[in-house]
Structure formats: structure tokens, C-alpha cells
Design a protein around this nucleic acid. Structure first.
Lengths: 332, 332
DNA sequence: TTGAAAGCGCTAACAC
DNA sequence: GTGTTAGCGCTTTCAA
């Protein structure tokens, strides 16, 4: 038994397709009595409208395409949760795609999503290759680039400056008296934002006549286990570090666990610094420094921009929402 | 400037709409030369097909609707990553919705997703209220219920038995000589699977003439911080426990951190047991017991069932994929 | 307040 | 190999 169509509901209610459509959408003038009959018929038949037809016909959809690089780190799910929550009640529906930090895959996912004629698209970062940018531009819908502020946005931009975050962390650590730095990171060729943080951090070190005494990099994606492993190796080679900067909090937490296992006092002997401000960090058995990035708030801000842009159906004036990471975990 | 349609591409290539359609899809017989012209024209015009029209016309979509309760815990994103990866290369596209553990919201999300005419739908758990079940049934597409095996599936079922998981953990802990148990959990009214684990765990205790000496419950969602707080409170009230069972690994990890802060030896004095087998658990500074649930594999299995069901376009014989959680972290 | 006609962009089915 | 016709299920536009 096929699903009932609007026409069948209309027949059941003894009206025309058009009247049924209006009644169900609650638009225009439909007599109370007619509307009642239609709604009742629809309920009786368990009518579920066909959005494909609706959107094709009306030339607009309620779809917001969202492309994130990963789901293996809690960061992006939190952003998605923010987007989803921010869209709640607007009638808009987020559709997520995962690019696995792969630019080619990202492009294909974007292409695929655009074929659904979304009313807006949210992508991660500002570093899409030109071809992808063209693809996005041609879609002629609001484009939100999320998470990063270091670069030239195509349209809307929500995020924070990872360069500033890295530089600020370095400044604070140097000011706190640390002088022998190590760096532990992973997948820097793919996680460009972590790369920006590292580069900026290093610049500040150089400005102070310092440098990374040792660094450990790995191609695998960040994880607590990897942070632990690399830190253990690093401390075996260079035991006299007094601070290690990590590509993110997952890695840093692993670093802390490595130090605990080795009996290295954190933060007295070695200060550990990460990025993100994960919930985990608040409960760790020793304090580690981090830059708190408001992930959920970023998602919500992106959702807000989408709602405005879609509602206004015109260029809204606010193009950028800048967040500032807050550094915690150093000093008292 | 509007987006080009198939017709415009066809005109540009000097062929009919239909020929252009065939050429672009690579179906049927189109002369090499014609196909080349069409593809080139499409590329030149940056043609992106309209899936709304495609799906409406062909009466089939490549959408797989997925509804999960939360994104705030890494568990569900990992499942989603598994689904997404499992669907890769099939031409199918997952669409995610978040219900926030709210049955009413879940129903509305499902309703909304069904209006997009997905070719399959994956939902979390087996405990949807009757109204939601009706909604799903009426869609007349493969329905996959994921994560849980304790109940009667509507159609396909992938997951593990949380009752068995809870019972198995209790048996192992009792066998390991533990006797004074505490329980720390959260949001049990919403996270029904955690509730099933707890109930089964408790049954085994009773069978051994034991019971939870103390329990701490909270309405908030699980988190490391909450686990830490509740554990600290519990140990203040009942210091002589020798084992605490948690609703999941996040809570258990918080419990471990609480013990470390209080100087309670884990696992010598108190054994800590959670559920999920999060990556985090592998790197913690002290061993905690957990039941490892293969989250990504479950997502991949669900994706496999969807592919089979969609490809076969008929009832496939395998209706259930059962996973067994593996208990780790007890003894060597 | 309601309905009829046209068409959104595409494909299925059948001609040629 | 290629084109034509007829929709998919809905909304828009216009008429009544």
C-alpha cells in the first residue's frame, strides 16, 4: 500500500488538491470547517507530505548542508549539536557530511549536498582549494565558514583565530617562566588549524630567542593514546623540558597521563598545554593549560547567521562572528 | 544567474534533454562522441544535477535517515562515523538527526525525515513508543534499530544486549571477590540502555545475596565531571566500598579521578567499572573495568544491512546482527 | 474561499 | 543511438 498523496487526502476530504494544500500548510483563507475536514482526513490517512515535491515545486528547501572533517573527536559533534540546536524551531534541517580531512572527499560531499539544493551551507575552515570555492560560490546560497578566522572568507565567517590562539598561549607560557619547550602533534598536514597554532606559537618562541627543543609528530589522527605514546618517547629523549605544547587537548591529556606514569610532576616540573578546553580537562588529576574554544556557541552562531540570511533573503550586514579563546590552567 | 538545468546543458550540447540525462548518468547506449559533448558542456556550465527532481521523478532517493539521541558523548558520533564510512561508495547519503533523548522530539524528527522519502532509516534503541513505531512502519522502508538487542525489533536490529552486558560485568566483579558495591549513574530515565545494564547488574548482585550499598543518581547527562562529583560525595558517605559500577565510561573516568584526588587506590581498594570501552579508558593512569562495545562496527553493520536491503529491494534474510561486549580491565 | 492549469527538473517508457 | 510523451507530488498563478 503506497503512501497517500495530497490528492488522495483532498479527495477523502472532498476538496481540491489546492485547498487541501492550503489547509495543511495553514496559509491563506480556508474556512475553518474545510480546514478541519482536511486535517482530519490527513490524520486519518497518516499523510506525510513529500518534501521532494514540495521543494521542487516551491523552489526552496529547508536543508542546511554541513560538512565537518571528522566525527572521531568530540569537538565536531559538539559543533554539530550547536548547529542543530540553533536551527531548532526554524523549520530548517541540518544535513551533515564527513570529509575525513580529505579535500577531494570534501569537494565531492559538497557537490553531492548542493544537488539537494540546500538553502545554506556550512563548511569547516577557510582553506578550501579554489575548485571547491568555485563550487560553493556557484551554489548562490549563504556560505558559512566555521571554526577558523585566519584567511579570507567567501561569505560568512564564524570562528576564532588559531594563529592568535597559538601566539597567546606561547606568550603566557613564556611569561610564566617556561623556557625549554617541546611540541607534540599529529596529522598537521590535514588539521590545518592545529598547524596554524603551532606556527604562531613557534613565532613567539623565536621572538623570545627560544625554539622547540624537541618535537614529535605523527601522521595518525589525534588521540589520548597517541599523545601518551609520543610524550613518553619525547621525555625519554629529552627529559629536561619544562613545557610541552600539544596539537590539542586529547593529545595533551595523553601527555599528562604519560607524565604521571613516569612520575614527572605536572605542572611543577613540566607544564602541559593543549587546545580546545574539552570537558575532560576540567576533571583531570593535574591541571593542564588549554585555550577554551566555544565549540557549541560557534555552531549556534552559525545557525543564527543561517536563519537570518534565509529569513532576510537578502545580504545581512554581519558577516563575521569572532570568538576569543580563553586560556586556563596556568597559575592559580 | 540561475543554476543551469539539464535542458540548458542539452541545448548547449545540441542534443535532447533525455540524451543529456543518459550521457551524464552513463547509462544505456549513448555514442561516445555525443556523451563527450554533453559531459563537456555540463562541465563548462558547472552543471550540478537537481536531486529533488531526480528523486521525485525516479521515485527513489539515496538518503538514509539516522536518528541518534545525542552528540555530547563521543559514542554516537563514532556510530555515525561507522555508518557514514559504511555507506561510502554506495551512492547512499546519511542524514543525521539528534533527538536529545526526547521521545517527542524523536518522533518529530522521524516524521520530518520521512518526508524526504529516505530509502532506509536507522534509529537508536528498541524502545520507541507505539506512535513512533507506527510512523516508522508506515514509511514502508527498511528500518534498522541500533545499539540495543533487548526487545522486539520492528525490522532489522543491530546491537548488543545491555542486560547481558550488565549481568556479565556483575558476575565478573563478584567472581573477582568484590562485595561492597556502589552505583553511580545519570539520566537513567532517558538513557534506557544504561538503565537496563543497571537492572541486570543488580539482579546478579541479588542472586549472590548482595545489593548496592549506596547509589548516586543525577538527572544531568553523563560527564566526567559529574562522575567525579558524585563519586566524591559517595565516598564521603560510604568510604568502605570496594567496587563502583557506573552508567558509562565517562562517569567511571570521573570516578577514577575522584579516587585519585582522595588517595584511594584503584583498583586495589576500589574497583571502578564502566561501560563502552572508550579510547580514553586505555590511557587512564589506573586500570578501570569496562565492557567494550564496538560502536563503529555497529554503525558499519547497520550500513551494510541498509546497502543489502536497498540493493536487493527485497526482504533480506539476516535481520539481526548481534555484538558481544568484551569485558576488560579486571585482573591482568 | 475555492479550484484549474501550468510547471518545478528530472526520468521511465516507449517510439523512431 | 536518440527523441517524444507523460508524469513524479507538490505549489504558484490566475481565475472564478
Amino acid at each position: 500500500m503506497r503512501k497517500p498523496t495530497l490528492e488522495e487526502v483532498a479527495i477523502e476530504a472532498g476538496v481540491s488538491k489546492m485547498t487541501a494544500s492550503r489547509a495543511l500548510r495553514g496559509v491563506a483563507d480556508v474556512s475553518r470547517e474545510t480546514r478541519g475536514r482536511v486535517i482530519e482526513a490527513a490524520a486519518r490517512m497518516n499523510y506525510v507530505g513529500n518534501r521532494l515535491a514540495l521543494s521542487l515545486s516551491s523552489q526552496r528547501t529547508n536543508l542546511v548542508a554541513v560538512v565537518v572533517p571528522s566525527m572521531s573527536n568530540i569537538v565536531f559533534p559538539e559543533v554539530l549539536a550547536g548547529i542543530s540546536a540553533g536551527l531548532d524551531g526554524s523549520g530548517l534541517q541540518a544535513v551533515f557530511g564527513i570529509s575525513d580531512y580529505d579535500v577531494a572527499k570534501e569537494r565531492e560531499i559538497i557537490r553531492d549536498m548542493l544537488s539537494w539544493q540546500p538553502c545554506a551551507i556550512i563548511v569547516t575552515g577557510l582553506d578550501q582549494p579554489e575548485e571547491t570555492v568555485q563550487l560553493l560560490r556557484r551554489a548562490n546560497i549563504p556560505i558559512i565558514q566555521l571554526m577558523d578566522l585566519d584567511g579570507t572568507p567567501i561569505d560568512f565567517n564564524v570562528g576564532l583565530s588559531h594563529s592568535e590562539a597559538g601566539a597567546a598561549m606561547a606568550s603566557v607560557l613564556v611569561a610564566a617562566g617556561r623556557g625549554r619547550f617541546g611540541y607534540v602533534g599529529s596529522a598537521l598536514d590535514r588539521d590545518l588549524r592545529a598547524g596554524k597554532r603551532k606556527a604562531a606559537f613557534e613565532s613567539v618562541l623565536h621572538a623570545h630567542g627560544m625554539h622547540f627543543v624537541d618535537q614529535r609528530l605523527d601522521d595518525a589522527f589525534s588521540s589520548i593514546a597517541l599523545g601518551k605514546r609520543l610524550t613518553t618517547a619525547m621525555l625519554a629523549a629529552v627529559p629536561d623540558l619544562d613545557c610541552i605544547y600539544y596539537s590539542n587537548d586529547d593529545m595533551a591529556s595523553g601527555g599528562l597521563f604519560a607524565c604521571m606514569e613516569l612520575g614527572v610532576a605536572v605542572p611543577q616540573k613540566i607544564l602541559i598545554a593543549g587546545f580546545n578546553g574539552l570537558d575532560l580537562v576540567n576533571s583531570l588529576p593535574a591541571p593542564i593549560a588549554t585555550s577554551r574554544s566555544p565549540r557549541r556557541a560557534m555552531g549556534e552562531a552559525a545557525a543564527r547567521l543561517v536563519r537570518q540570511a534565509v529569513a532576510a533573503d537578502q545580504v545581512s550586514e554581519q558577516k563575521t562572528v569572532a570568538f576569543k579563546p580563553m586560556i586556563t590552567g596556568i597559575g592559580e
